[in-house]
């Protein structure tokens, strides 16, 4: 099959351990250097100060860990044809090529950033920023005792409106964040620090993403976030909940639900 050449790559990776203290901008720079070292033919912006065209999903807050981070890389078609990288859309599903790239990239990135897979992206696939609709989080909090955490969770879930003040482009605004809390539960004392308490949360990213720190303020002003780990990012569709790229290299496919996609 002579498929059209993909002009984008989608990569799935983790951010775990000490490296979580780097910022989203830091991670972007790490990727720029790693992709150059792997000789991936990245496309650049034109103009006075060319920048590589990388697209990330929703920024992970500095200090947060993640099992599921995503990056879309736009490829330079001229260089991709002439160079070592010929990336066919969804070809990785059939061959080992994508595994090679993932294996090549991981040693070029800091410890804790492990590349699960990298696949060519068909034109029809939405960008990450457009596509991701919700995230799962495992949070660890302190500052309030076990009963207090449970009560705060119950209070929030039984409310129809929860107002939180937050910054939007430098302005203080008051938003109702209740609709963004899709699921929330207290999971008891943390195994690492018995005085800390666990929470799991499923938070909507649309119309505007709810951050873990904002969720905590909605729960109880005294709560302190000691650990945050994003476990999944989801593309919610009417009949399915899909990952932007599964660990086995599965793409969600165009908006018509893909029958091979995993159900939530």
């Amino acid at each position: 099959m002579t498929a059209e050449l993909a002009d984008r790559l989608r990569i799935r990776y983790t951010k775990l351990g000490k490296i979580r203290f780097t910022s989203q901008r830091d991670v972007a720079r790490m990727w720029e250097r790693a992709l150059r070292r792997a000789k991936v033919p990245v496309a650049y912006t034109s103009g006075f100060s060319p920048r590589p065209l990388l697209g990330f999903s929703l920024a992970l807050p500095t200090g947060g860990e993640s099992d599921a981070e995503y990056l879309d890389v736009r490829l330079d078609p001229a260089e991709a044809r002439g160079g070592e990288f010929v990336v066919n859309p969804q070809a990785p599903l059939e061959g080992p090529a994508y595994l090679d790239l993932a294996q090549m990239l991981t040693p070029l990135l800091p410890q804790g950033i492990d590349v699960a897979c990298a696949v060519g992206l068909p034109h029809s696939e939405e960008s990450l920023q457009e596509a991701v609709t919700s995230c799962n989080w495992e949070l660890e909090v302190s500052g309030v005792d076990s009963d207090g955490v449970t009560e705060a969770v119950e209070r929030l879930l039984s409310s129809t409106t929860v107002l939180v003040e937050r910054d939007r482009k430098g302005r203080r605004v008051t938003d109702d964040v209740r609709p963004a809390v899709l699921a929330l539960s207290a999971t008891g004392p943390s195994p690492r620090h018995p005085t800390n308490h666990g929470l799991t949360a499923h938070l909507a990213m649309r119309p505007r993403g709810l951050r873990p720190s904002e969720l905590l303020r909605a729960l109880d002003e005294n709560l302190v976030l000691t650990r945050a780990r994003r476990t999944h990012q989801w593309i919610d569709r009417s009949d399915a909940r899909l990952e932007p790229l599964s660990v086995t290299g599965q793409l969600p496919g165009a908006c018509v639900p893909d029958h091979s996609g995993q159900l939530a």
Partner: peptide
Amino acid sequence: EPHLLSVEKPARYIGMED
């Protein structure tokens, strides 16, 4: 480690550079 979330630019204190 527990204090690094409360300081500016904590990446300055983790090492790990190539």
